[in-house]
Simulated scan of single mutants.
Amino acid sequence: MGKKLYVGNLSYNTTEDSLKERFEAFGHVESVRIITDRDTGSSKGFGFIEMGTDAEAQAAIASTNGQEVDGRMLKVNEAMDKPRDDRSRDNRRRGSYSY
């Protein structure tokens, strides 16, 4: 179990401070980041929270997944590493292509 959590289905009005406050009930919150649109700065409706320990992260998942926050039912689970597709993205930048 990882310490980094994915938090989805966030209200666009939810703030990083309010999320941190809610998750501090389960232990030390190392970081909170709500993902925003780079052009508008608006929330994309999901974010990531890093808890201090695996046990704290597990307690946070068990207690908050499916709970209503700001009128939305949260989806909370262990964050997965983003898959890297270096081959297609990096090769396009270099001007070469793999077929």
Rank of each mutant, 00 (worst) to 15 (best):
T40Y: 07
D90M: 07
E16N: 15
G41Q: 13
L5Q: 08
K75S: 12
M73S: 13
V7D: 04
E24N: 13
R33F: 07
T64K: 04
L10S: 11
S88D: 12
K44D: 08
F48W: 05
E30T: 11
D90A: 06
L5P: 07
K20W: 10
E78R: 03
K82Q: 12
K44Y: 08
E68W: 06
N91V: 00
G95K: 05
Y97P: 00
T53I: 06
Y12P: 03
G8A: 03
E16K: 13
R33V: 13
S18A: 15
I61H: 03
E30M: 11
G66R: 10
M80W: 02
M80R: 15
A59H: 01
M1C: 00
S63Y: 01
S43Q: 13
D39H: 07
M73R: 12
S43T: 15
A62F: 00
E16P: 10
D54R: 05
G41I: 11
R22E: 14
T64I: 05
V29H: 07
H28C: 03
K3H: 06
E56H: 13
A25V: 02
G47Y: 09
Y99D: 00
T14M: 13
L5K: 07
M1D: 01
S42M: 12
K4C: 09
Y97R: 06
D81N: 06
E24Y: 04
D54M: 03
A25N: 07
D39I: 10
G27K: 05
I34H: 13
A60L: 01
E21N: 10
R72Q: 14
R22G: 01
G66L: 11
D81P: 03
V29L: 08
S98H: 09
A60N: 01
G41W: 12
V69K: 13
D70V: 02
M51T: 02
R22N: 07
E78C: 03
R92N: 13
D37P: 00
M51D: 03
A59Q: 05
S98T: 11
D86L: 12
K4T: 13
I49Y: 09
K75A: 09
A57W: 02
Y97I: 00
H28L: 12
A79L: 05
A25K: 10
P83M: 04
G27M: 09
N77C: 11
R38D: 10
G2M: 00
N9L: 03
Q58I: 05
F48C: 03
R94T: 04
G95V: 06
V32E: 14
L74K: 05
L19R: 11
